[in-house]
Amino acid sequence: MTTATSQDMLSPWKQGVKDALPLFGGYIPVAISFGLISVQSGFGVLETILISLFIYAGASQFLFVAMVASGAPMSLVVIMTLLINARHIVYAPNIAPYLGKDRRWLFLMHGLTDQLFALSLARLPQIAKADRIAWYTCTAMLAWFSWVAGTAIGAIAGDEITQRWPVINDVLPFALPALFLVLVAPRCNNRLWTLTLGASAVLALSLRLVGYPNLAIPVAALSGAVVFYALQTGKARGKTV
């Protein structure tokens, strides 16, 4: 997923800021919504901020708040939220070859959200080895900050903001699909990958539309991998026949 060469790069910190900007557009409106919903569900402002600070995983935070508000058993709340976050298992091994042995990476993994993983997988190979930790730290910290700050804003003044500037909620979240498209597009450079990625995107979209938002990503990703291997096997057989 290369979009630029290391020669085109700014300093790792500047590049980190630049790469984090699209995340702001996606994170802040969603975080404002989360802050608002959390407070409306009975959580305090500080509690809401702490949830974003420590869990830092969007979908599971919404589920956590909704399940607690509906009076679900605590054990079920824990199991369900962790199940949703289980998709994170595949993220670090994918980027591990670019990270090196620095122990700071272990702490930085708190910031490895869906979006940061997608960004890292595309960007880390283009950055000089010595600069990668600076780039990741900058991008991850800014993303984390925007999520926590957005949550705080939502918890304190979310109602007023969404009423006064509904465009924030309606328009800015489009930054995320646009960013994902830019991250996926370079990989579609042959038929095998185009069909694989197209299949997983269409399946995720369909699952989300028919009411399975939490299943959409893991199921579509696994199905995409099945499509990849099916096409690859078919191609290999075609060559041997």
Partner: peptide, 14 residues
């Protein structure tokens, strides 16, 4: 394989 399909699935869902 699963890394890029995850990103693509996030794209579709978003």
């Amino acid at each position: 394989v699963l890394g890029p399909t995850m990103i693509s699935a996030m794209f579709g869902a978003s």
